[in-house]
């Protein structure tokens, strides 16, 4: 076979891309590719022509599971040089959505005991801040307590990762109209995705509270003082949604973390 004939080279390149070149013919062709740059260009040309053909026109994308698992596999590999070596990639250690029962109760209970101290020492989530906001006219009611070292009546949610390390903290004064959320460990998600916070009312469908930053603090204005707005809410939860899926009406792939709403009074 004369591999210098342009027509033959073109046909072989196309059939190679198409996948119809098999067996010995394929092996011989691949042998040529090692030292025939022009043949490689032909293969590249036919790849660009044939591979996009027949793609579904529907704009669909992979779920966030792919990225998370990829990230985990890279974490697990021993040869990686990480962009941020000290970052705790907590997302892969989150509790499974069905995690519940005694261990959860114990974990949340144990964390709740320490919450007052966390609220006072965690940067950006001081009780004084919440108190100021409440006294700023956002609430018609006055805070019930603001003495230093004493936790005012508040709703608190701590979402731990699978190791029990707090990953997200949410708090609202009982008499306030703002729910403040601090992301304690950065979300590692694909750029096109976004974490979304949900309220899970007792016996009702989830209610979206809004999107979260991947790190830092977010505030959500409640429609009423939290004692009313959160009265029937059992839990808060976080899901990962595609940014293109706005507005969010229901979580598309379940929750990546959820935890009970704790009343401090």
């Amino acid at each position: 076979m004369n591999y210098q004939r342009p027509e033959l080279r073109n046909m072989l390149a196309a059939e190679y891309v198409l996948g119809t070149l098999k067996g010995g013919a394929r092996r011989r062709f691949e042998g040529l590719l090692h030292h025939d740059r022009e043949l490689l260009v032909l293969v590249e040309t036919w790849t660009g022509r044939l591979l996009p053909a027949g793609l579904p026109s529907e704009e669909v994308g992979p779920s966030h599971r792919v990225w998370f698992e990829l990230n985990q596999r890279l974490d697990d590999s021993t040869s990686t040089v990480r962009d941020k070596p000290s970052r705790l990639r907590w997302f892969h250690r989150l509790w499974p959505s069905g995690f519940s029962g005694a261990s959860l109760t114990a974990a949340v209970g144990g964390i709740a005991i320490g919450v007052a101290g966390m609220l006072l020492i965690a940067p950006g989530v001081r009780v004084e801040d919440l108190t100021l906001r409440s006294g700023d006219g956002r609430s018609a009611m006055q805070p019930t307590a603001s003495t230093e070292g004493q936790l005012p009546d508040s709703y608190i949610v701590v979402m731990p990762d699978r190791t029990g390390t707090p990953a997200l903290l949410a708090a609202a004064l009982r008499s306030g109209k703002v729910l403040r959320v601090k992301v304690l460990q950065e979300f590692e998600i694909a750029p096109e995705d976004i974490p979304v916070l949900w309220a899970l009312p007792h016996g009702g469908p989830p209610t979206v509270l809004g999107s979260l930053p991947t790190e830092g603090v977010a505030e959500f204005d409640l429609l009423a003082v939290s004692e009313q707005a959160l009265a029937r809410v059992d839990e808060l939860a976080v899901s990962i949604e595609s940014r293109s899926a706005r507005p969010f009406s229901a979580p598309q792939a379940g929750y990546v973390m959820r935890s009970s709403l704790i009343r401090s009074w």
Partner: peptide
């Protein structure tokens, strides 16, 4: 990833 996912879906 979105584009490549559609390649795999195809």
């Amino acid at each position: 990833s979105h584009f490549l996912f559609r390649v795999a879906i195809r």
